[in-house]
Every structure is written in C-alpha cells, then in structure tokens.
Design a protein around this nucleic acid. Structure first.
Lengths: 111, 111
DNA sequence: ATTACTACCTTGTATCACAAGGTACTAGGT
DNA sequence: ACCTAGTACCTTGTGATACAAGGTAGTAAT
C-alpha cells in the first residue's frame, strides 16, 4: 500500500457505476452535472473515467441520451435511465447493501 | 451490465484488501482460514485472488508470516499484521467509512 | 482572428480479480 | 515401494477498468 490516494482509488473501484446510476436516476443530466454531483458527495471522478463509463452503460442498454443545445458552448448529451437501467440499479443497490453489511460485520467482530 | 455475478465482482473490487486485513487483524491465520472466514461473511474469494493479494500485502510491509508445520499436510504460512499493517488498516477503515457514507447519502437523496 | 470557456472523446498504462493449471508435502491403502 | 486422496502453496494468462494526458470542436467576447 503506497499512499492514501491510491488506497482510496482501489476501494472505489466498482462503486462508480452504482454512483453514476444513482445520480442519473434523479433526473436528466449531462456529464458535467454528474461530475459536480459526485464531487459534492466526495466521490471525485475525472473525465477520463466518466466518459468511458457512460459509454459502457449506454452500450449495455442501461442509459439513453439526447443531444441538447446549450447557450454557453457546444451541445450536451443528456442521459436518462432506461427500463433496463432501473432494473440494473435496483440489483446493484441490493448487491451494495449485502456487501456493505458483510464488511461491517467483519468490522464489528474485529472490535 | 451482463449478470449478477459480474456485477457483484465489480462492486467487490478493492474491498478485498480491507476484508483480508480485517480477518488477519483478529489473529494469526493461514490462507485457508482466511478463505473460510470470508466465505462465512459472504465475501467469497478464490485462491487465485487471495495468494497474489497476500504477497502484495507482505511486499508492502503490511503483513508478516511464519511457517508452521501441520499434522495433516504441507506446512502453512501463518500471517499477522505488522505495525504498518495496523496503521494501513486503520486508514482503510476511515476511507471505507467515508465512501460508504457517500454512497448512502446518494441513495437517500434518490429515494 | 485570437483567446477563453465549455463539452465530448480517445489513447496508453498500471492495477487487479479470476480461471486454470502446477508443485509439493502427508497419510493411508495395497 | 507405489499409488491415490487430501491439503497447501504458487504462477500464468486474460479481461476489465480507473486514471493521466492529450485531442477535437462548438460558442462568445475582445
């Protein structure tokens, strides 16, 4: 283990998909909105991570999008959850709950 | 997203190091002990994942070990936390707590 | 036409979980 | 002495993915 930031990065792996689906589930958003909301939740993500992830979720059929013009720059891609995305999110939430409880039970025994 | 097992695997990435350190922190154990305890906590890990992880933790100075003979087979490597390992674990626990709260706060807002 | 800002995307690298396969020690039966 | 079964350790190869760095292109104001 080298330092705190690497540690955080490792622990975060795999959670980003859940976090992004949660953000999108609140309403139509484009990439910068997502980055901002994740930052507000202390789940910092960078562009190089987010864009490929959004593409994967779109290819999987979990997300859809429409282009929308902006008054202050180039057009934006606004994403929404599809039916499949809603179902995926609900499964991920279940998985998250189980995993979280597993870790917390290990912590309790340790204490 | 393809299926539930892949989903689970993705979400679990990065948590295994924390889980293993937690198990070892309870006392001297060898690989099969760790596998069994993680299985009991529904955090299934396979040998091909655990052995490289133990080697990494040893190389990082977080774990130490001694060989110990067994009456029922080849000798075993018993692992313990080093001082550094204890410090790493405590940092990881802090990171876990923060991350967990971040995700849970996103969930609450969504609901 | 240059600069600044915004927004989308790609490439290359390092890391890691896992499947599959391999080595080696002990014990018990033949 | 020779198998077979059980246990325990480890390595190799593959696919996935978070991230840094760099690239393209639209709008708007000087």
């Amino acid at each position: 283990m080298k330092d705190a930031s690497e540690q955080k990065s490792q622990l975060r792996k795999g959670l980003l998909e859940l976090a992004v689906l949660l953000v999108v589930s609140r309403g139509s958003v484009y990439a910068s909105d997502i980055l901002k909301q994740l930052k507000d939740s202390d789940l910092l993500v960078v562009e190089g991570t987010l864009y490929p992830l959004l593409s994967r979720l779109k290819d999987d059929g979990s997300l859809g999008y429409q282009w929308q013009e902006s008054k202050s720059g180039p057009p934006r891609k606004y994403y929404q959850l599809t039916k499949k995305g809603e179902s995926d999110l609900s499964q991920l939430l279940q998985t998250w709950t189980n995993l979280s409880q597993s870790i917390n039970s290990l912590i309790k025994i340790t204490k």
